[in-house]
């Protein structure tokens, strides 16, 4: 008689398409294969649904008929390593980038990176916004900002933010820029996850703030990236979203 570990090994192999484990029984033995297929189907369908819920735009872009087998293939190659499925799919962007049938769509991995980052932002830790009075009183030469745990900057190789935006429910067919975009992803005070494309100056500003630069140095970095850049609108937008959670001098 197989040990329980041996039984699980053969059951799992059969879930992946191998021959069925010995000793399976059904009321009618002719039904064993079809009954086992319920488990195979549950695993494949539930993992496909989990991936679809984290990557709705990828699903929309490739179409449901292509997404289902794509998700099954990914699930076989990179099974979840934990029961927390919201954390599964971190390797999906690289998988798409290395999948030959999708080579003509080089923006897909970038769109997947945005969706991945949105998921992380949705579940990121909570942090209260800093008191605006602290910001007003801050010495710009010395102050550094702590941004909300959901804030993430993504440097993309394609106009993936615009592609992502036009594929939102109710999204309009905005013209696509011909250049690569940088995405700012954050969760605002109403728990909505925002995705926006940043200009070179804003991207440099937030990159420097995240790296721990003082506000003054971050503004200079932004001006090096984009002549005449004004940091104020981006800082106001961050404050409005509750994304500045501390200011330290």
């Amino acid at each position: 008689m197989p040990t329980h570990a041996e039984f699980m090994r053969s059951f799992d192999a059969a879930l992946r398409g191998d021959v069925l484990p010995a000793g399976l029984q059904a009321r009618n033995m002719a039904e064993v294969e079809r009954r086992f297929a319920v488990y195979r189907n549950n695993v494949a369908v539930s993992l496909t649904a989990a991936l679809a819920s984290r990557f709705p735009v990828i699903r929309r872009l490739v179409g449901e008929a292509f997404f289902a087998p794509l998700a099954r293939l990914y699930a076989e190659m990179d099974r979840p390593k934990s029961p927390v499925l919201a954390e599964w799919g971190e390797g999906f962007a690289d998988f798409l980038g290395a999948f030959p049938p999708l080579a003509r769509y080089p923006y897909l991995p970038d769109v997947a990176r945005i969706e991945c980052a949105r998921g992380r932002a949705f579940h990121a830790a909570d942090a209260a916004p800093v008191d605006p009075a602290v910001l007003v009183a801050a010495d710009t030469n010395r102050v550094t900002f702590v941004l909300h745990p959901s804030v993430h900057l993504l440097h993309l190789a394609s106009p993936a933010v615009s592609i992502w935006a036009r594929n939102q429910p109710g999204g309009s067919p905005i013209p696509l820029p011909a250049r690569a975009e940088t995405a700012l992803i954050l969760r605002d005070a109403s728990f909505a996850v925002q995705v926006r494309a940043l200009g070179a100056g804003d991207a440099a500003l937030i990159g420097a703030i995240l790296a721990g630069s003082t506000l003054c140095d971050a503004a200079l970095t932004a001006q090096e990236a984009e002549a005449g850049h004004d940091p104020a609108p981006m800082l106001v937008a961050l404050m409005r979203a509750g994304a500045i959670t501390d200011a330290q001098e």
Partner: peptide, 19 residues
């Protein structure tokens, strides 16, 4: 629902034995 390090996302059956 897990085998080794991998999570299968289904409630899979087991034989009822002393082991």
């Amino acid at each position: 629902s897990s085998h080794g390090a991998e999570y299968l996302n289904d409630l899979l059956p087991l034989p009822y034995t002393e082991e």
